[in-house]
Design a protein around this nucleic acid. Structure first.
Lengths: 225, 225
DNA sequence: CTTCAACGATCAAAATACGCATGGATCGGT
DNA sequence: ACCGATCCATGCGTATTTTGATCGTTGAAG
């Protein structure tokens, strides 16, 4: 999952970044509205966290411009306590949720979870695909009642593929969503991780868990239940 | 739009109901959790507003049971001021948003807007041409319910032709769009790929899927639906 | 009606690109 | 410094793409 953070106050920005890091999300950060607009236009994020009070380009305006450009990822706005008018204008501009500063880190974590979950059209935090079960809040994976130990990259790769079950996901889409900015493209990390996932989750290939569409990408083949 | 309201305090319930009425939403109201569960299981709502502190069946539990029954409409929860733990557990149970009581009516209106917009924001990426179906986000092609496996060049050729259905597309236009830089002209790759597409998608020629305009190019013959 | 030339279709072989497994290097946390 | 996680380089096997040769079609001219 790749997340954009637009926050001008450095301490808060750093705090959010480190929180996101513990969650193993790939993050890009911008310190003002204009930079945020640039990044948000450039990349396809899974979520954006935007402070409404921003230099150079107001948060509300930033959201409007992003939405005008068909950027449809969920947006969580941060507002100073007390002025609900801000929240309302932000939501009307196209944000999906808000959080009042100061906030409890745990709450931010929960809101982000909820937004990402909702954006992928899944209500419950446990995803079930036949014998494969992914608990996104505990970040644990089971196959037929027995837990499968995954590293965080293996987990992220699996989740991204599973959330787009049935779709062909290109390797570049995967790297874009699993890694932060500028990543060396000519590497075969993705192939390695897909290989590991197959070995761990479907050693004998009987599930045909992840199939490769040569030249197009990978596809997660189990239906959500 | 049909909305479910589960709120035990009558004055607040009435207030929400009248607010919804001004928005022209169709509403059902329940005064306790059990009634809410009954209504929520029975009908397919577009959104639910649920107070967390409910008699007979706790709000969090109610949400969990609804989600377990595959009720995937967005849920907005109402909580008493101050205890963010409630919100968190509600969101983890499968809610999408919350509002702290007391709230400003204007704000409730905005949140509901945002949720409904998000829920319906599923722009279909499926192109349908009679029996031929192209899912551009999954990069998969079907003819009459059965999937047709295409290689990436076959897929690209098909999509370009389909997106310009009814028009004559010259071979040079195709090469220009399918290949990066100037491509060796005296080659018959395009003919080969058109041939493959015809064979895979319309083996007996009954659809007249792609006709050739001698000297002009090719034409995709099905109308978009 | 036949002939001819230009164009397109088809096929199979050759060239290429792509993905996979493997093992070792490097990174990062404890 | 250690250990596991992640990343990278290599070579191999194979699906895909490309090519070139051949054959079929078309439409116009003779």
């Amino acid at each position: 999952m790749r997340i954009l953070i637009v926050e001008d106050e450095k301490p808060l920005r750093e705090q959010i970044l480190s929180l996101m890091a513990t969650e193993k999300y790939a993050c890009d950060a911008a310190a003002d509205g204009r930079e945020g607009l640039f990044l948000g236009s450039e990349y396809d994020y899974d979520l954006a966290i935007i402070d409404l009070g921003l230099p150079l380009l107001d948060g509300t305006q930033l959201i409007r411009e992003l939405r005008a450009k068909e950027r449809n990822f969920p947006i969580l706005i941060l507002t100073a306590r007390g002025n609900w008018q801000d929240k309302v204008s932000g939501l009307e501009a196209g944000a999906d949720d808000y959080l009042t500063k100061p906030f409890h880190p745990e709450e931010l974590r929960a809101r982000i979870h909820a937004l990402l979950r909702r954006a992928s059209g899944h209500a419950s935090s446990v995803l079930r695909y036949g014998p494969i079960t992914i608990d996104t809040s505990a970040k644990r994976v089971h196959r037929d009642e027995t837990e499968v130990e995954l590293t965080s990259f293996e987990y992220n790769t699996l989740t991204y593929l599973a959330l787009h079950a049935g779709k062909n996901i290109s390797k570049s889409e995967l790297t874009e969503h699993l890694y932060a900015q500028d990543y060396d493209r000519d590497s075969n990390v993705i192939e390695v991780f897909v290989g590991r996932l197959r070995k761990k989750l479907d050693p004998d290939g009987s599930l045909n868990l992840i199939s490769t569409q040569r030249g197009l990408g990978y596809r997660f083949n189990l239906d959500k239940q």
